[in-house]
Computed example of a mutant assay.
Amino acid sequence: MRLEAITPENYEAALAVRVRADQDDLVEPVVTSLAEAYVFREFAWPRLMYDGDRVVGFLMAFLDIPWDPERDPADRRSGLWRLNIAAGEQGKGFGTYGVEEVCREIRARGGTQAYVTWEPREGGPEDFYLKLGFRPTGERSGDQTVGVRELS
Results as ranks from 00 to 15, higher is better:
residue 13 A to I: 11
residue 149 R to P: 03
residue 44 A to S: 11
residue 88 G to S: 01
residue 100 E to Y: 01
residue 112 T to A: 13
residue 61 A to Q: 10
residue 124 G to L: 13
residue 111 G to Q: 04
residue 133 G to S: 06
residue 52 G to P: 08
residue 145 T to S: 06
residue 24 D to L: 07
residue 78 S to K: 06
residue 136 P to I: 01
residue 41 R to S: 09
residue 60 M to A: 13
residue 25 D to H: 11
residue 90 Q to R: 04
residue 63 L to Y: 00
residue 35 A to C: 06
residue 98 G to H: 12
residue 17 V to T: 01
residue 80 L to I: 12
residue 72 D to P: 02
residue 152 S to Y: 15
residue 6 I to M: 03
residue 21 A to Q: 05
residue 38 Y to K: 07
residue 20 R to Q: 15
residue 34 L to N: 10
residue 9 E to R: 05
residue 15 L to G: 06
residue 62 F to E: 15
residue 19 V to F: 08
residue 42 E to I: 12
residue 101 E to S: 04
residue 18 R to M: 03
residue 17 V to I: 08
residue 72 D to C: 15
residue 26 L to F: 08
residue 148 V to C: 03
residue 27 V to W: 13
residue 84 N to R: 02
residue 46 P to K: 14
residue 43 F to E: 02
residue 121 R to F: 11
residue 87 A to G: 01
residue 23 Q to G: 03
residue 124 G to P: 09
residue 40 F to A: 11
residue 2 R to D: 07
residue 110 G to A: 14
residue 115 Y to C: 01
residue 136 P to R: 06
residue 113 Q to I: 01
residue 102 V to K: 00
residue 85 I to D: 02
residue 141 S to I: 09
residue 9 E to Q: 15
residue 73 P to I: 08
residue 95 G to Q: 10
residue 90 Q to M: 12
residue 76 R to K: 11
residue 56 V to I: 10
residue 113 Q to G: 10
residue 10 N to L: 02
residue 75 D to E: 14
residue 13 A to G: 03
residue 136 P to D: 07
residue 79 G to T: 03
residue 120 P to Y: 01
residue 73 P to S: 11
residue 82 R to G: 05
residue 18 R to C: 08
residue 72 D to E: 11
residue 92 K to E: 08
residue 54 R to I: 10
residue 57 G to D: 03
residue 87 A to S: 10
residue 36 E to I: 01
residue 99 V to I: 12
residue 13 A to K: 15
residue 23 Q to W: 04
residue 145 T to L: 05
residue 20 R to N: 12
residue 41 R to N: 03
residue 26 L to M: 11
residue 16 A to N: 04
residue 104 R to N: 02
residue 139 E to H: 13
residue 133 G to M: 05
residue 140 R to Y: 03
residue 70 E to T: 13
residue 72 D to R: 11
residue 2 R to S: 06
residue 92 K to R: 13
residue 43 F to R: 00
residue 74 A to L: 13
residue 72 D to W: 14
residue 67 W to M: 04
residue 5 A to R: 06
residue 112 T to N: 04
residue 12 E to H: 09
residue 46 P to H: 06
residue 143 D to E: 12
residue 6 I to R: 11
residue 129 Y to C: 01
residue 16 A to V: 06
residue 120 P to H: 09
residue 56 V to H: 09
residue 119 E to F: 00
residue 51 D to L: 05
residue 100 E to D: 05
residue 52 G to V: 14
residue 104 R to K: 12
residue 87 A to K: 10
residue 115 Y to L: 14
residue 2 R to Q: 07
residue 17 V to D: 08
residue 88 G to Y: 09
residue 39 V to D: 07
residue 118 W to R: 03
residue 108 A to Q: 04
residue 34 L to S: 08
residue 142 G to W: 14
residue 53 D to T: 14
residue 37 A to M: 12
residue 26 L to R: 12
residue 133 G to A: 00
residue 42 E to L: 07
residue 38 Y to W: 15
residue 100 E to S: 00
residue 11 Y to P: 06
residue 88 G to E: 02
residue 149 R to D: 14
residue 86 A to M: 06
residue 39 V to E: 14
residue 65 I to D: 13
residue 121 R to V: 15
residue 129 Y to N: 01
residue 124 G to C: 02
residue 29 P to M: 12
residue 112 T to V: 07
residue 21 A to G: 09
residue 111 G to T: 00
residue 152 S to F: 04
residue 2 R to L: 09
residue 99 V to G: 03
